Computed example of a mutant assay.
Amino acid sequence: MNARGWARRVRWYLRELTGEAEYDRYCERHRRHHPFAPVPTRREYQVLRARHREEHPHSRCC
């Protein structure tokens, strides 16, 4: 594996770890299902996710 391939994998991992990739997937899905609606900003998306988590609590083991 060369340095470029290693860097690409590290970048992918960090984006998945931080949730940045989740926002990108949301934007793609939003554009596909609502082509004429504006895409929420990252901050608006975070507010939507927080509201959804509060309204739909999941049971936790700990």
Rank of each mutant, 00 (worst) to 15 (best):
D24K: 14
E20H: 04
G5L: 09
Y23S: 02
H30R: 15
R49W: 03
M1D: 06
G5D: 05
H56P: 00
R60L: 14
C62M: 08
L48F: 05
H30F: 11
M1V: 06
R32W: 05
P57F: 05
L17F: 14
V39F: 02
Q46C: 04
G5E: 13
A7V: 02
E16C: 11
A3Y: 08
P35Y: 01
T41L: 01
R29W: 14
Y23E: 02
A3W: 00
P57M: 00
R43L: 07
R60D: 12
R25I: 05
E16T: 10
H33F: 08
M1F: 04
R32F: 01
R60A: 13
W12L: 09
H56C: 08
H33K: 09
Y45D: 03
P35V: 02
P57S: 05
R60I: 13
Y26H: 12
V10A: 12
G5H: 06
C62E: 15
H52W: 15
Q46V: 06
C27Y: 01
R25Y: 04
H52F: 12
R11D: 09
T18D: 10
E55W: 12
R31E: 13
R51I: 06
F36T: 14
D24C: 07
E20L: 02
R42H: 03
E55S: 09
R51E: 12
T41P: 00
R51G: 06
Y45S: 01
H52R: 12
L48R: 09
H58A: 14
F36R: 15
A21E: 08
T18A: 01
V39T: 12
E22S: 14
A7Q: 12
T41V: 00
S59G: 14
A3L: 13
E55H: 13
V47K: 04
R9F: 03
H30N: 08
G5R: 11
R15G: 01
Y23G: 01
Y13H: 10
H58N: 11
E20T: 08
E44I: 01
A21G: 04
Y45W: 03
R31S: 06
P35T: 00
L14Q: 12
Y23V: 03
E28N: 01
Y13D: 02
R8A: 12
C27Q: 12
Y13M: 12
E44D: 04
C27D: 04
R42V: 01
A50D: 05
E55L: 14
R51K: 09
E20S: 11
R9G: 11
